[in-house]
């Protein structure tokens, strides 16, 4: 398996947020501002990498019957660690993310990668899978966070771009705005992805045809 494939899967082809539509709760809840989105993304990435590594290491030790509870214990441990770290060093982010931080433990992306990838692949690949899946999640959340923060508050990462009293669409700061943003991002991402995918298929087909002719 190539590293490039893992990277492409995590960030684009199987982007957990925009392609697989996993982890929707935090996606909708914390993307009101870019900073929180980025923070949540990093937290999930940390847990993904660590849990994938440990689960991959133990994949031949953990009996199949109890793999899910074992995975959950491992994931919960790393979630607790990341929660403690954020509470200690970034208390504002801790307050902002609230319960969603603890709820990482039931994030489908993490359990999904543990079950679908880490438990079947070597440590190196599993770590990379965790890294790129986390990056895909972080990128999607942060982009959405930037989009919503700019429109709803006229700022980006807390830096004011313009006076929100002059122009802002506060709707994008609401729950309904979160759903609309999410829908738009999925649509745009898939349209772009399909267009690129179609183009590369055409190129491949043309190359194969040329080779055949030759």
């Amino acid at each position: 398996m190539k590293i490039r494939e893992i990277a492409l899967d995590g960030v684009v082809r199987q982007n957990p947020t925009l392609k697989l539509v996993l982890g929707t709760c935090p996606t909708l809840a914390v993307t009101t501002v870019a900073f929180d989105s980025f923070g949540m993304g990093l937290a999930v990435t940390f847990v993904l990498i660590c849990s994938n590594i440990i689960i991959s290491l133990l994949r031949n030790v953990i009996p199949d019957k109890v793999r899910i509870p074992a995975f959950i214990m491992i994931i919960a441990t790393f979630v607790t660690i990341v929660e403690m770290v954020i509470k200690k060093f970034v208390p504002d982010l801790y307050s902002s993310l609230g319960n969603f931080l603890a709820l990482i433990v039931v994030n489908c992306i993490i359990l999904g990668r543990a079950e679908g990838f880490a438990s079947q692949n070597p440590v190196g690949y599993s770590a990379l899978d965790g890294l790129f899946m986390g990056l895909g999640f972080t990128l999607a959340l942060t982009t959405m966070g930037i989009f919503r923060e700019v429109l709803a508050k006229g700022s980006i990462f807390g830096v004011t771009l313009w006076d929100a009293n002059v122009f802002s669409i506060s709707f994008f700061g609401t729950s309904a705005g979160a759903f609309l943003t999410y829908g738009l991002f999925i649509a745009v991402f898939n349209v772009a992805y399909n267009a690129v995918d179609r183009k590369s298929r055409h190129k491949l087909a043309a190359r194969l045809a040329n080779e055949e002719v030759a």
């Binding site: 133990l58 009996p63 109890v66 074992a70 214990m73 491992i74």
Partner: peptide
């Protein structure tokens, strides 16, 4: 199974 779960729990 029980032993592995216990071991993981203790380590965690």
């Amino acid at each position: 199974s029980v032993a592995v779960l216990l071991a993981i729990a203790i380590v965690c």
